[in-house]
Design a binder for these strands. Structure first.
Lengths: 195, 195
DNA sequence: GTTTGATTTGAACGTGCGTTCAGATAGGCT
DNA sequence: AGCCTATCTGAACGCACGTTCAAATCAAAC
């Protein structure tokens, strides 16, 4: 019978994932060995295989989890209102979500190429689903005349690139609060697409 | 005396750099072995060390070359005129330069973390120099009232992120010409910062 | 206090890594 | 024709990799 208390599995499992996330983000998937992850957790390399069938699946699982969380949290954001309101919510949500988990975001952009084709397709599909959310907002605003977006797909990519860029320079101890950054970016995003 | 004709050095050298650039871009620095690069060139691994002291220096040299080329080409762009004109030139230049060498651009963003600290500092400094060019344009436009950029540094990062994002989706055989893409992005950039 | 099974160890597997270097090769020079 | 030397080969170095697995460990269940 499985132990339900005092089992190390419930402790070691998350610690393996935490260590892998942190090390993959810092040094890159290819540069991090299973032995490094194990050392971080305080365990021998063999023990990791109680928690993942292999290294590739560990990476995929981290990314899949991240994307699921992204979509789940976005699903909880109010979706009613004008395209302008919805766009503001998206911009602020995107910045805040990304800043709160820089390591997962970093891996999501850097390690896609290290996913096997099948795994890559899954993540790519989830990413596209997320992008479609923004695209829909921009199309709605275009139809109603509030936005001027000659090419909604490109505008989507441009806005996401701009927002995602925050992670490359924002520091929690910097001169601006996250709220201030959100507002500055929201202002720029609004001007970018407004009619 | 050094052979100046028929020498393989003049042929193999560039081929090593080409292969390294392509493979680093496709699979990542850490995932590419010297033996793979050598195989691509049609040579044994040991021969590579006639052209680079080690793998790390090969990566650094590619990035350094790229940054030097970026700054050299930008230096040839007309710098006179109104901030609006200068911003348009920057936007179009940035897109075109990036699209013309996607592999070098990709490596420049992905493999920075694989540079030794000293090498990293050099590349980072060159990047900042380039960013300052845009920042100056935005500040000048702000002073003259043509632009409304409450935070020029952030606006710089936002614009560069937006423009650099083109490389993630643009395909030469896609539905838009590079000229069309430039124009669409220039329009968005202009709106982003215009007063 | 013994049994049970989830968890971990520690060693081993074959493979490939970056780099070095003595020796072979071959093209330009005199 | 023969020398010179830039260039390349092929083998070797020690080391680390991802993964496997029998044996050891140890906390919960009885």
């Amino acid at each position: 019978m499985a132990r339900t208390q005092g089992s190390h599995s419930g402790i070691t499992g998350p610690r393996v994932r935490d260590a892998a996330l942190r090390l993959f983000a810092r040094d890159g998937y290819a540069a991090v060995s299973m032995r490094q992850i194990a050392r971080e957790v305080g365990v021998q390399a063999g023990a990791l295989y109680n928690y993942t069938p292999d290294k590739q699946t560990l990476l995929f699982s981290l990314l899949k989890n991240h994307m699921d969380e992204l979509l789940a949290e976005w699903a909880q954001v109010e979706t009613s209102g004008s395209p302008l309101d919805r766009l503001e919510r998206f911009a602020r949500f995107h910045i805040r979500f990304n800043i709160e988990r820089p390591e997962a975001i970093f891996i999501s952009y850097m390690e896609l190429r290290n996913l096997e084709p099948g795994n890559f397709a899954v993540i790519e599909d989830l990413r596209r689903t997320y992008e479609k959310e923004l695209e829909t907002i921009l199309r709605d605003g275009g139809k109603s005349g509030v936005f001027d977006v000659p090419d909604p797909r490109i505008a989507t990519m441009a806005v996401i690139a701009m927002l995602t860029g925050v992670n490359t320079w924002y520091r929690a101890d910097g001169r601006l609060t996250l709220e201030q950054v959100e507002t500055i970016y929201w202002d720029m995003v609004r001007k970018t697409v407004e009619a």
